[in-house]
């Protein structure tokens, strides 16, 4: 029996963007243009809008989409910036994005790509 192969990906970071419901598609489209694939979207509910924004808070949907995806560590700045701009995160109540370092990751990698590396 042939040995199963596993390739560890290193120098990888996890980027997570918490954003108003309905915006995950916009982010995902921008990510695909940057070459980042396989983003995962969760749904969630945020707080703070009602408490801190008063009446203007009605303009903010407390339901959130949490979109997370892995990026190469050396490209974090480029992608981080793009997500910030596309998601309009400089608007109050819109959401936020953060990066966490990952030690390693593994998934299916097309053979032609492993050979190239």
């Amino acid at each position: 029996m042939a040995k199963r192969r596993m390739t560890n990906l290193i120098d990888v970071s996890l980027m997570t963007c918490v954003i108003q419901k309905g915006m995950a598609d916009t982010i995902n489209k921008a990510l695909l243009e940057l070459g980042v694939q396989g983003a995962t979207v969760h749904m969630g509910v945020g707080t703070g809008v009602r408490e801190r924004m008063g009446l203007l808070g009605v303009a903010v949907d407390v339901e959130r989409e949490i979109i997370s995806f892995m990026v190469p560590s050396d490209q974090v700045d480029r992608i981080f910036e793009r997500v910030f701009i596309v998601g309009r995160l400089d608007t109050p109540g819109m959401g936020y994005v953060y990066v966490t370092p990952l030690l390693q990751a593994a998934t299916y990698i097309p053979p032609n790509l492993t050979e190239r590396a």
Binding site: R52, A59, P92
Partner: peptide, 19 residues
């Protein structure tokens, strides 16, 4: 104490425009 967020005019425009 929870303080109210103070927003500038352009912030409010940015917030309300898509809404």
């Amino acid at each position: 104490k929870v303080t109210k967020l103070i927003m500038s005019g352009s912030d409010i425009v940015n917030l309300l425009q898509p809404y």
